[in-house]
């Protein structure tokens, strides 16, 4: 597992993402999130880690 964010940084990330989503508006939300995922996947530089992340995001979609 690669480097993780501290709790404080995670909170900041949460806020930044929420602001980002709000900023683009409902109509562009999906496109924005898809772009973000692609940028982050590229930065992650690890296809297995990406697969793991997709799995994590897929479970418990209640």
């Amino acid at each position: 597992m690669s480097k993780q964010l501290s709790e404080e940084q995670l909170e900041t990330a949460l806020e930044m993402l929420a602001v980002g989503i709000n900023g683009v508006g409902r109509e562009k939300e999906s496109l924005f999130l898809a772009k973000l995922c692609l940028v982050l996947a590229n930065q992650l530089g690890d296809i297995d880690l990406l697969e793991w992340a997709i799995d994590q995001a897929t479970v418990d979609l209640m």
């Binding site: 496109l31 898809a34 772009k35 692609l38 940028v39 590229n42």
Partner: peptide
């Protein structure tokens, strides 16, 4: 479709895409 559009949209300013 979404990922294709994400790629195109990123490619406007990001060489990696």
């Amino acid at each position: 479709h979404l990922m294709r559009d994400a790629t195109l949209s990123l490619a406007v300013s990001n060489a990696f895409a």
